[in-house]
């Protein structure tokens, strides 16, 4: 039911409308449920409506947490030593 991937806003088409790009697939969606979205922003779209905007800084932070996984493994080790 939902294309669960983020879309990049490429054009504001007037009213609440916008054209977005889902990694190559372009669609008309509605921005009626979100405020202050501009061209270049990434949004989460569900059944043709943007539900929220993606926060670039938070995304970086989450990726940094993933990257820590490698370090943790070394830290805890198989012998169960606590870092």
């Amino acid at each position: 039911m939902c294309l669960a991937i983020p879309a990049r806003v490429i054009e504001l088409t007037g009213g609440d409308g916008a054209r977005v790009d889902f990694g190559g697939v372009r669609r008309e969606i509605s921005l009626a449920l979100v405020d202050d979205v501009s061209v270049g922003d990434y949004v989460i779209v569900h059944v043709g409506y943007a539900l929220s905007r993606l926060d670039a800084e938070e995304a970086e932070r989450t990726l940094a947490l993933f990257a820590e996984a490698g370090i943790d493994v070394v830290g805890t080790g198989a012998d169960g030593a606590v870092p």
Binding site: L33, V34, D35, I44, L51, S52, R53, L54, D55, A56, E58, A59, R61, T62
Partner: peptide, 12 residues
């Protein structure tokens, strides 16, 4: 956190 806040989408 890149898309979800504590309050969610208040407008919706």
């Amino acid at each position: 956190t890149r898309a979800v806040t504590e309050d969610g989408n208040l407008k919706a």
